[in-house]
């Protein structure tokens, strides 16, 4: 069986949950088995995971699982995996998923792959692909152990509805006491976090100063996109650090990345070159970013961005 651990920040399921179940269903089909989803803590509407192919949905409703401790979560997931004779454990490749994947791999002495971007192939061994060297290459790994641990990169697969809701069952495993006390969780409401965003509008030093970000934000708002920035912009405190993308910032793979006034240094590209479509707006036709772009606009961002915002508005109005 394929066991899928589903995160539920603040008791809610996110799009990544449906992606991971879709991934799990495809893998389970290829393996000739079923997949089950596991949620921890109190979760709203977990039964809908059945729609994406989970043949059962398990939950452990212990209040101790409402805040995150990788040790406690690892034991719970491992116990459920063992009780259900799982041979693959899937997780999302998030801050939570990554700390669990490593622990589970050590616990089961399992081959693991962190950040898989396609469903494994099973001919001639269990093989999975991921992006390596900051997006400059793809590696195909073969996992040889009886148990396999895979964290799935966000936006690697589109959620597919293949079934209907299932009843949530309680998994009977004991929950360990936590050695971590979470004091506070601060999240921004209403904004899709960068690693999950499908549309990203990003700007760099070409914007000249923080006071000019209004046009960037307007475009993002009209599109329903999340904003990002280059490293010098975050270093100069023009924008908050969590917006910094690139090799030393967040790595993202949205469907659309619009880069405004960013030169396209290799360290910046490292975080964004897995985006499906890249649009570059830059006044310098020689800017290196154009080599990595699908669509380019050469000219002054201060004129082009408001024009693009207008065009997006008109497009949305006509939908």
């Amino acid at each position: 069986m394929v066991l899928i651990y589903i995160e539920s920040p603040k008791g809610k399921l996110k799009k990544a949950a449906f992606e991971t179940v879709t991934y799990g269903k495809k893998l389970a089909d290829a393996m000739g088995t079923t997949c089950a989803a596991l949620t921890l803590g109190s979760v709203e509407d977990a039964g809908q995971l059945g729609k994406y192919g989970a043949s059962k949905v398990l939950n452990i409703a212990d209040a101790a699982l409402n805040s995150f401790d990788s040790q406690v979560f690892t034991k719970a997931i491992a116990d459920v995996a063992t009780a259900n004779s799982a041979t693959v454990i899937l997780l999302g490749h998030s801050s939570t998923g990554k700390s669990l994947a490593g622990r589970l791999a050590a616990r089961f002495n399992a081959g693991s792959i962190a950040g898989a971007n396609s469903v494994p192939t099973l001919t001639g061994g269990f093989k999975v692909r991921k992006s390596v060297f900051s997006g400059k290459a793809v590696a195909e790994y073969e996992l040889k152990s009886a148990m396999k641990i895979i964290s799935v990169m966000g936006n690697s697969i589109q959620p597919e509805i293949v079934g209907s809701d299932v009843a949530v069952e309680t998994a009977n495993v004991s929950v360990a006491a936590s050695r971590i006390k979470v004091r506070e969780v601060k999240t921004q409401e209403g904004i899709v976090p960068l690693p999950e965003a499908e549309l990203v509008v990003s700007a760099g030093r070409g914007m000249k100063g923080p006071e000019h970000w209004g046009i960037v934000e307007d475009l993002a708002t009209v599109m329903g996109a999340t904003t990002a920035c280059s490293r010098p912009v975050a270093d100069a405190h023009w924008r908050p650090h969590h917006e910094h993308v690139g090799q030393t910032g967040v790595a993202i793979r949205p469907n659309l990345y619009i880069a405004i006034g960013i030169s396209g240094a290799i360290q910046h590209l490292a975080g964004v070159n897995n985006s499906k479509v890249i649009v570059v707006i830059n006044k310098d036709a020689e800017a290196p970013f154009f080599k990595a772009a699908d669509y380019g606009v050469v000219g002054d961002a201060f004129e082009i961005v408001p024009r693009l915002t207008e065009a997006m508005k008109n497009f949305k109005a006509a939908l």
Binding site: A105, N109, A110, G111, S112, I113, G125, K127, S131, V132, G135, K136, A137, V138, A139, E140, Y141, E142, L143, K144, S145, N273, V280, F290, K291, A292, A293, D294, Y295, G296, V297, V298
Partner: peptide, 18 residues
């Protein structure tokens, strides 16, 4: 428990449309 079976370089972009 795992080995690299093979590496690949990503497909080059077909060129920017201006």
């Amino acid at each position: 428990q795992s080995t690299v079976a093979q590496f690949e370089l990503p497909k080059a972009k077909t060129g920017v449309k201006l």
